[in-house]
Simulated assay, not measured.
Amino acid sequence: MSEYQYYEFVALDRPLDDRQQAEVRELSTRATVTPTSFINEYHWGNFRGDPDQMMEHYYDAHLYLANWGTRRIMFRLPCELLDLDTAGDYCVGDQSQAWTNGDHLVLDLTSEDESGEGEFDAKWALSAVIGVRAELALGDLRPLYLAWLAGYGSWERDEDAFHRDADHELEPPVPAGLDTLSAAQRALADFLRLDAALLRVAAQASPPLNTVAHDPAQLAAWVADLSDTDKDRWLLRVIDDHAAPVRMEMLRRLSDENITTAAAPPRRTVGDLLDGAARLRT
């Protein structure tokens, strides 16, 4: 069987300038490089670059596939929109990790399955999952919970994935709306091989999603009430070519000010969730 690896990086908040494009070009002469993307495929050999460093310095999202069963998705967000403590609550071993680099947080989600060796589905494109980044920026923690659940779900495929004591680990805060995932979240769950029965069991403790719709008059009133300091700060950043992150910050504040937090449900153990999924399948 021949080897296959696929790398895709996307810059969303700010395109790469000529110098940055030249720097990533040095990592591969065969890659397709534009101001907003880097794509390469390997049928032999390996990529000379370090995806971690590329995410820290150049790109906002990354997807990796290998036909020996590895899937990896990464997102970079401003720490103001997703802090390390919050992301850390949902980290699981090597399957989901997070770290900060300067003003940004990098989220790294991986799924391994040796039984899937040789698989490759052309439907797996970064564009299918990229919407998760904007959802995280708005304070939607469902993608983090899905990654946590998929991480422990891998225990059912690999009995050596965790120590037996992990049965007693408590789940992190359960976000609302697990039974009404967005299209990007469903794509993420599939990408990370999250078992459907396990997701159904987890969703039983998830309250309904509280969505808030804003009409133009409400938005205008909200903007009018912003302090001059905030308006000046955001406007200067827009002029300095940071319009995308400014928009995310403004929407995040608007969302935080209008969403009512539901009472947290009792936390279950990893063993409770896995046993519930097994019963559901039976």
Rank of each mutant, 00 (worst) to 15 (best):
D18I: 12
P245R: 02
D108S: 15
D165P: 00
A98T: 12
S2R: 12
M54V: 05
L63G: 01
V212W: 02
V201G: 02
L280F: 05
L170E: 14
L273N: 07
E257W: 06
N210V: 10
R142G: 01
Q95C: 11
V129L: 14
F9W: 04
M54C: 03
F162K: 06
L12P: 01
R237I: 08
L144I: 09
A134F: 01
A243I: 03
E112F: 15
A134I: 01
T180D: 14
F191T: 05
R25Q: 12
E169W: 09
M248G: 01
W222S: 09
A184N: 09
S255G: 06
V106A: 05
A137P: 07
G131A: 03
D83G: 13
Q97Y: 00
D167W: 11
H242Y: 06
P208T: 10
R164W: 09
F191N: 05
T282N: 13
H57P: 00
S182D: 00
R76L: 05
D190K: 10
L236W: 05
F75Q: 07
L107N: 12
P207I: 12
E8L: 03
D103I: 00
M54N: 05
A197W: 02
A61W: 00
Q218M: 11
R281V: 11
G151T: 11
A217H: 10
A183E: 14
A220I: 06
C91M: 12
Q97R: 15
R193G: 11
D89I: 00
T229W: 01
R267T: 13
T29Q: 14
T70S: 10
L192C: 09
L126H: 05
W222G: 07
E169F: 11
D52F: 05
P35H: 06
S28C: 13
K123C: 02
T180P: 00
A221L: 13
T260V: 15
S111Q: 14
F191M: 05
P172L: 08
G45Q: 07
G69H: 07
A244D: 08
M55G: 10
S115P: 00
L236Q: 14
T211P: 00
A205W: 02
W148M: 07
L141M: 02
R200W: 00
M250F: 08
R279Y: 06
A220G: 13
H104G: 04
D83C: 13
P216S: 09
P172A: 09
S2H: 09
E257K: 12
